[in-house]
Nucleic acid binder design. Structure first.
Length: 328
DNA sequence: AAATCGGGGAG
DNA sequence: CTCCCAGATTT
Protein backbone atom coordinates (compact mmCIF):
# COMPACT_ATOMS: atom_id res chain seq x y z
CA UNK A 1 0.00 0.00 0.00
CA UNK A 2 1.10 3.55 -0.68
CA UNK A 3 2.80 5.11 2.33
CA UNK A 4 0.73 7.88 3.85
CA UNK A 5 3.45 10.25 5.02
CA UNK A 6 4.33 11.67 1.62
CA UNK A 7 0.65 11.93 0.71
CA UNK A 8 0.08 14.08 3.80
CA UNK A 9 2.75 16.56 2.76
CA UNK A 10 1.67 16.71 -0.86
CA UNK A 11 -2.00 17.27 -0.05
CA UNK A 12 -1.26 19.89 2.60
CA UNK A 13 0.86 21.87 0.12
CA UNK A 14 -1.75 21.48 -2.60
CA UNK A 15 -4.62 22.52 -0.33
CA UNK A 16 -2.77 25.65 0.77
CA UNK A 17 -3.06 27.17 -2.70
CA UNK A 18 -5.89 25.23 -4.37
CA UNK A 19 -8.61 25.32 -1.71
CA UNK A 20 -11.87 27.09 -2.46
CA UNK A 21 -12.66 30.11 -0.32
CA UNK A 22 -15.88 28.88 1.29
CA UNK A 23 -17.47 31.01 4.03
CA UNK A 24 -17.78 28.12 6.51
CA UNK A 25 -14.03 27.51 6.22
CA UNK A 26 -13.00 31.00 7.25
CA UNK A 27 -11.45 31.53 10.66
CA UNK A 28 -14.22 33.92 11.69
CA UNK A 29 -16.96 31.38 10.97
CA UNK A 30 -18.72 30.27 14.16
CA UNK A 31 -19.08 26.60 15.18
CA UNK A 32 -22.80 27.01 14.47
CA UNK A 33 -21.95 28.12 10.94
CA UNK A 34 -19.87 24.98 10.48
CA UNK A 35 -22.71 22.87 11.86
CA UNK A 36 -25.26 24.42 9.49
CA UNK A 37 -22.97 23.89 6.52
CA UNK A 38 -22.33 20.24 7.34
CA UNK A 39 -26.02 19.41 7.60
CA UNK A 40 -26.86 21.30 4.41
CA UNK A 41 -24.01 19.55 2.59
CA UNK A 42 -25.35 16.08 3.36
CA UNK A 43 -25.96 14.68 -0.13
CA UNK A 44 -26.04 18.19 -1.55
CA UNK A 45 -23.35 19.90 -3.70
CA UNK A 46 -21.53 23.02 -2.46
CA UNK A 47 -22.83 25.23 -5.27
CA UNK A 48 -26.43 24.73 -4.21
CA UNK A 49 -25.73 25.08 -0.49
CA UNK A 50 -23.93 28.43 -0.68
CA UNK A 51 -26.89 30.81 -1.13
CA UNK A 52 -29.06 28.90 1.35
CA UNK A 53 -26.28 28.93 3.98
CA UNK A 54 -25.76 32.68 3.60
CA UNK A 55 -29.44 33.43 4.12
CA UNK A 56 -29.74 30.99 7.03
CA UNK A 57 -26.77 32.49 8.87
CA UNK A 58 -28.06 36.00 8.20
CA UNK A 59 -31.44 35.18 9.74
CA UNK A 60 -30.48 32.68 12.43
CA UNK A 61 -26.81 33.17 13.37
CA UNK A 62 -27.07 31.16 16.61
CA UNK A 63 -28.65 27.91 17.81
CA UNK A 64 -31.03 29.95 19.98
CA UNK A 65 -32.23 32.02 17.02
CA UNK A 66 -32.75 28.87 14.97
CA UNK A 67 -34.62 27.11 17.77
CA UNK A 68 -36.99 30.08 18.11
CA UNK A 69 -37.85 30.37 14.42
CA UNK A 70 -41.23 29.21 13.06
CA UNK A 71 -40.88 25.83 11.37
CA UNK A 72 -42.59 27.20 8.26
CA UNK A 73 -39.81 29.78 7.87
CA UNK A 74 -37.15 27.12 8.44
CA UNK A 75 -38.59 25.06 5.59
CA UNK A 76 -39.02 28.08 3.33
CA UNK A 77 -35.43 29.23 3.71
CA UNK A 78 -34.30 25.64 3.20
CA UNK A 79 -36.09 25.98 -0.14
CA UNK A 80 -35.19 23.21 -2.59
CA UNK A 81 -32.05 21.86 -0.95
CA UNK A 82 -33.81 18.52 -0.74
CA UNK A 83 -34.50 16.10 2.12
CA UNK A 84 -36.42 18.78 4.09
CA UNK A 85 -36.42 16.56 7.18
CA UNK A 86 -32.80 17.69 7.50
CA UNK A 87 -34.05 21.23 8.08
CA UNK A 88 -36.37 20.18 10.91
CA UNK A 89 -33.65 18.02 12.44
CA UNK A 90 -31.22 20.93 12.30
CA UNK A 91 -33.75 23.03 14.18
CA UNK A 92 -34.27 20.18 16.66
CA UNK A 93 -30.50 19.99 17.10
CA UNK A 94 -30.46 23.73 17.81
CA UNK A 95 -33.17 23.26 20.43
CA UNK A 96 -31.15 20.47 22.04
CA UNK A 97 -28.12 22.77 22.19
CA UNK A 98 -30.21 25.39 23.98
CA UNK A 99 -31.54 22.80 26.41
CA UNK A 100 -28.48 20.69 27.09
CA UNK A 101 -25.46 22.76 26.06
CA UNK A 102 -26.21 26.33 27.11
CA UNK A 103 -26.99 27.38 23.56
CA UNK A 104 -23.54 26.40 22.32
CA UNK A 105 -22.47 23.80 19.79
CA UNK A 106 -21.00 20.89 21.77
CA UNK A 107 -17.28 20.41 21.19
CA UNK A 108 -16.84 16.66 21.16
CA UNK A 109 -17.86 14.16 18.51
CA UNK A 110 -19.59 12.05 21.15
CA UNK A 111 -21.87 14.89 22.25
CA UNK A 112 -22.48 15.96 18.67
CA UNK A 113 -23.47 12.44 17.68
CA UNK A 114 -26.39 12.57 20.12
CA UNK A 115 -27.98 15.53 18.30
CA UNK A 116 -30.85 14.97 15.83
CA UNK A 117 -29.66 14.58 12.24
CA UNK A 118 -26.02 14.16 13.26
CA UNK A 119 -24.43 10.86 12.28
CA UNK A 120 -20.89 9.53 12.27
CA UNK A 121 -19.68 11.85 9.52
CA UNK A 122 -21.25 15.10 10.71
CA UNK A 123 -20.17 14.59 14.32
CA UNK A 124 -16.56 14.05 13.28
CA UNK A 125 -16.62 16.90 10.76
CA UNK A 126 -17.96 19.52 13.19
CA UNK A 127 -15.62 18.40 15.97
CA UNK A 128 -12.68 18.60 13.56
CA UNK A 129 -13.46 21.70 11.47
CA UNK A 130 -15.05 23.81 14.21
CA UNK A 131 -12.99 22.71 17.21
CA UNK A 132 -9.75 21.36 15.70
CA UNK A 133 -10.18 17.92 17.17
CA UNK A 134 -8.25 15.08 15.50
CA UNK A 135 -11.29 13.07 14.42
CA UNK A 136 -11.30 10.61 11.54
CA UNK A 137 -13.58 12.32 9.02
CA UNK A 138 -14.88 10.16 6.20
CA UNK A 139 -17.30 11.39 3.57
CA UNK A 140 -17.99 10.20 0.05
CA UNK A 141 -15.05 12.20 -1.32
CA UNK A 142 -12.58 10.86 1.20
CA UNK A 143 -13.77 7.29 0.68
CA UNK A 144 -13.07 7.66 -3.02
CA UNK A 145 -9.63 9.23 -2.48
CA UNK A 146 -8.68 6.44 -0.08
CA UNK A 147 -9.96 3.78 -2.49
CA UNK A 148 -7.83 5.13 -5.30
CA UNK A 149 -4.66 6.38 -3.63
CA UNK A 150 -4.26 3.57 -1.08
CA UNK A 151 -6.37 0.63 -2.28
CA UNK A 152 -5.90 0.95 -6.04
CA UNK A 153 -9.62 0.75 -6.82
CA UNK A 154 -11.62 2.98 -9.13
CA UNK A 155 -14.49 3.50 -6.69
CA UNK A 156 -15.11 2.65 -3.03
CA UNK A 157 -18.48 0.97 -3.48
CA UNK A 158 -21.83 1.85 -1.98
CA UNK A 159 -21.44 0.87 1.65
CA UNK A 160 -18.93 2.18 4.16
CA UNK A 161 -17.29 -1.06 5.32
CA UNK A 162 -15.39 -1.82 8.49
CA UNK A 163 -12.25 -2.29 6.40
CA UNK A 164 -12.64 1.20 4.96
CA UNK A 165 -13.13 2.66 8.43
CA UNK A 166 -9.95 0.96 9.59
CA UNK A 167 -8.03 2.22 6.55
CA UNK A 168 -9.19 5.76 7.27
CA UNK A 169 -7.81 5.47 10.81
CA UNK A 170 -4.53 4.03 9.61
CA UNK A 171 -3.78 6.76 7.09
CA UNK A 172 -4.41 9.61 9.51
CA UNK A 173 -1.28 11.63 10.30
CA UNK A 174 0.16 11.06 13.78
CA UNK A 175 -1.24 13.69 16.12
CA UNK A 176 -0.88 14.82 19.68
CA UNK A 177 -3.96 15.01 21.82
CA UNK A 178 -3.68 18.75 22.22
CA UNK A 179 -3.16 19.59 18.59
CA UNK A 180 -5.56 18.45 15.90
CA UNK A 181 -4.19 20.82 13.25
CA UNK A 182 -2.49 18.08 11.23
CA UNK A 183 -5.58 15.90 11.28
CA UNK A 184 -7.84 18.80 10.29
CA UNK A 185 -5.65 19.72 7.37
CA UNK A 186 -5.51 16.11 6.24
CA UNK A 187 -9.27 15.68 6.43
CA UNK A 188 -10.19 18.87 4.64
CA UNK A 189 -7.45 18.47 2.03
CA UNK A 190 -8.49 14.91 1.17
CA UNK A 191 -12.09 16.03 0.93
CA UNK A 192 -11.17 18.94 -1.32
CA UNK A 193 -9.06 16.71 -3.54
CA UNK A 194 -12.05 14.43 -4.01
CA UNK A 195 -14.29 17.38 -4.82
CA UNK A 196 -11.98 19.16 -7.28
CA UNK A 197 -9.51 16.62 -8.72
CA UNK A 198 -10.25 13.03 -7.72
CA UNK A 199 -13.86 13.22 -8.89
CA UNK A 200 -16.13 10.24 -9.36
CA UNK A 201 -16.85 10.66 -13.08
CA UNK A 202 -13.73 11.97 -14.82
CA UNK A 203 -10.80 12.43 -12.42
CA UNK A 204 -8.29 15.12 -13.38
CA UNK A 205 -5.21 13.05 -12.70
CA UNK A 206 -3.04 15.44 -14.75
CA UNK A 207 -3.56 18.06 -12.03
CA UNK A 208 -3.34 15.69 -9.07
CA UNK A 209 -0.56 16.32 -6.54
CA UNK A 210 -0.34 12.62 -5.67
CA UNK A 211 -0.80 11.09 -9.12
CA UNK A 212 2.65 9.49 -8.95
CA UNK A 213 1.79 7.90 -5.60
CA UNK A 214 -1.71 6.76 -6.47
CA UNK A 215 -2.16 2.99 -6.25
CA UNK A 216 -5.02 3.13 -8.76
CA UNK A 217 -2.89 4.93 -11.37
CA UNK A 218 0.08 2.67 -10.70
CA UNK A 219 -2.24 -0.25 -11.42
CA UNK A 220 -3.14 1.25 -14.78
CA UNK A 221 -6.38 2.96 -13.73
CA UNK A 222 -8.58 -0.13 -13.99
CA UNK A 223 -12.29 0.64 -14.52
CA UNK A 224 -14.85 0.24 -11.78
CA UNK A 225 -16.38 -3.18 -11.33
CA UNK A 226 -20.15 -3.63 -11.35
CA UNK A 227 -19.94 -4.15 -7.62
CA UNK A 228 -18.28 -0.79 -7.11
CA UNK A 229 -20.72 1.21 -9.21
CA UNK A 230 -23.41 3.06 -7.30
CA UNK A 231 -26.68 2.56 -9.06
CA UNK A 232 -28.60 5.82 -9.05
CA UNK A 233 -31.86 6.03 -7.21
CA UNK A 234 -34.96 6.20 -9.38
CA UNK A 235 -36.71 9.53 -9.37
CA UNK A 236 -39.59 9.83 -11.82
CA UNK A 237 -42.79 8.49 -10.36
CA UNK A 238 -41.43 7.93 -6.86
CA UNK A 239 -42.97 9.09 -3.62
CA UNK A 240 -39.99 11.36 -3.20
CA UNK A 241 -40.92 13.24 -6.35
CA UNK A 242 -44.55 13.55 -5.25
CA UNK A 243 -43.57 14.64 -1.75
CA UNK A 244 -41.27 17.22 -3.29
CA UNK A 245 -44.08 18.59 -5.43
CA UNK A 246 -46.36 18.88 -2.39
CA UNK A 247 -43.68 20.67 -0.39
CA UNK A 248 -43.02 23.04 -3.31
CA UNK A 249 -46.71 23.97 -3.32
CA UNK A 250 -46.80 24.47 0.45
CA UNK A 251 -43.71 26.68 0.31
CA UNK A 252 -45.85 29.27 -1.48
CA UNK A 253 -46.73 30.23 2.08
CA UNK A 254 -50.51 30.03 2.40
CA UNK A 255 -52.69 27.20 3.68
CA UNK A 256 -54.25 25.31 0.77
CA UNK A 257 -57.41 23.31 0.54
CA UNK A 258 -56.37 19.65 0.60
CA UNK A 259 -58.43 18.56 -2.39
CA UNK A 260 -57.09 21.46 -4.45
CA UNK A 261 -53.49 20.82 -3.38
CA UNK A 262 -53.64 17.16 -4.36
CA UNK A 263 -55.61 17.87 -7.50
CA UNK A 264 -53.27 20.50 -8.86
CA UNK A 265 -49.91 18.77 -8.43
CA UNK A 266 -47.98 19.06 -11.71
CA UNK A 267 -47.58 15.28 -11.89
CA UNK A 268 -50.21 13.75 -14.19
CA UNK A 269 -48.89 10.22 -13.65
CA UNK A 270 -49.36 10.25 -9.90
CA UNK A 271 -52.50 8.43 -8.80
CA UNK A 272 -54.88 9.88 -6.23
CA UNK A 273 -53.82 7.05 -3.94
CA UNK A 274 -50.15 7.99 -4.19
CA UNK A 275 -50.85 11.69 -3.68
CA UNK A 276 -52.77 11.00 -0.49
CA UNK A 277 -50.19 8.52 0.76
CA UNK A 278 -47.42 11.08 0.30
CA UNK A 279 -49.39 13.82 2.03
CA UNK A 280 -49.97 11.51 4.99
CA UNK A 281 -46.27 10.75 5.21
CA UNK A 282 -45.40 14.45 5.16
CA UNK A 283 -47.85 15.09 8.00
CA UNK A 284 -46.36 12.16 9.90
CA UNK A 285 -42.89 13.65 9.38
CA UNK A 286 -44.00 17.03 10.72
CA UNK A 287 -43.31 18.68 7.37
CA UNK A 288 -46.97 19.55 6.83
CA UNK A 289 -49.93 20.21 9.10
CA UNK A 290 -53.61 19.53 8.56
CA UNK A 291 -56.28 21.97 9.65
CA UNK A 292 -59.92 22.94 9.23
CA UNK A 293 -61.00 26.03 7.37
CA UNK A 294 -63.11 28.51 9.29
CA UNK A 295 -63.42 30.66 6.19
CA UNK A 296 -67.13 31.48 5.63
CA UNK A 297 -66.66 30.63 1.94
CA UNK A 298 -65.63 27.06 2.61
CA UNK A 299 -66.30 26.18 6.25
CA UNK A 300 -65.14 22.81 7.51
CA UNK A 301 -62.94 22.09 4.51
CA UNK A 302 -59.62 20.37 5.22
CA UNK A 303 -56.60 22.59 4.64
CA UNK A 304 -52.87 21.81 4.50
CA UNK A 305 -50.02 24.13 5.42
CA UNK A 306 -46.42 24.24 6.51
CA UNK A 307 -46.08 23.65 10.27
CA UNK A 308 -46.74 26.76 12.34
CA UNK A 309 -48.83 28.57 9.74
CA UNK A 310 -52.25 27.61 11.04
CA UNK A 311 -54.20 29.17 13.87
CA UNK A 312 -51.95 32.23 13.92
CA UNK A 313 -53.15 35.75 14.78
CA UNK A 314 -52.26 36.83 11.23
CA UNK A 315 -54.52 34.21 9.69
CA UNK A 316 -57.69 33.56 11.69
CA UNK A 317 -59.33 31.87 8.71
CA UNK A 318 -57.94 28.45 9.57
CA UNK A 319 -57.57 26.38 12.68
CA UNK A 320 -55.28 23.54 13.58
CA UNK A 321 -57.06 20.25 13.52
CA UNK A 322 -56.63 18.35 16.79
CA UNK A 323 -54.63 15.17 16.26
CA UNK A 324 -56.86 12.69 14.46
CA UNK A 325 -54.90 10.13 12.45
CA UNK A 326 -57.83 9.07 10.29
CA UNK A 327 -58.77 12.56 9.20
CA UNK A 328 -59.05 13.20 5.49
C1' DA B 1 -27.45 -4.84 4.63
C1' DA B 2 -31.13 -2.58 2.29
C1' DA B 3 -34.75 1.13 1.73
C1' DT B 4 -36.15 5.53 2.08
C1' DC B 5 -35.68 10.35 1.80
C1' DG B 6 -35.00 15.75 -2.85
C1' DG B 7 -33.33 18.07 -6.35
C1' DG B 8 -30.60 19.72 -10.00
C1' DG B 9 -26.33 20.37 -12.64
C1' DA B 10 -22.83 17.88 -15.27
C1' DG B 11 -21.48 14.54 -18.58
C1' DC C 1 -30.97 10.31 -20.82
C1' DT C 2 -27.90 8.66 -16.34
C1' DC C 3 -25.03 9.69 -12.64
C1' DC C 4 -23.83 11.75 -8.33
C1' DC C 5 -23.46 14.98 -4.52
C1' DA C 6 -19.30 17.13 2.94
C1' DG C 7 -25.50 11.23 4.92
C1' DA C 8 -28.97 9.96 8.49
C1' DT C 9 -32.51 7.06 9.99
C1' DT C 10 -35.37 3.14 10.02
C1' DT C 11 -36.34 -1.64 9.19
Amino acid sequence: MTEAGLVHERLADWYAHAARDLPWRRAECSPWGVMVSEVMLQQTPVARVLPRWLEWMDRWPTPAATAAAPAAEILTVWDRLGYPRRALRLQAAAAAMVERHGGEVPTTAEELRDLPGVGEYTAAAVACFAFQRPEVVVDTNIRRVHARVFSGKALPGKTYTAAQRQLAREVMPATFDDDGALACTWNIAAMELGALICTARAPRCASCPVADLCAWRLAGSPPATEEEKTRGQAWAGTDRQVRGAIMAALRQGRPVLQWRLLDQLPLPEATAQQRLRCLESLVADGLAVRGISTDPEEPGETVIALPGLLDSPQDPSHQVLPASPGAQ
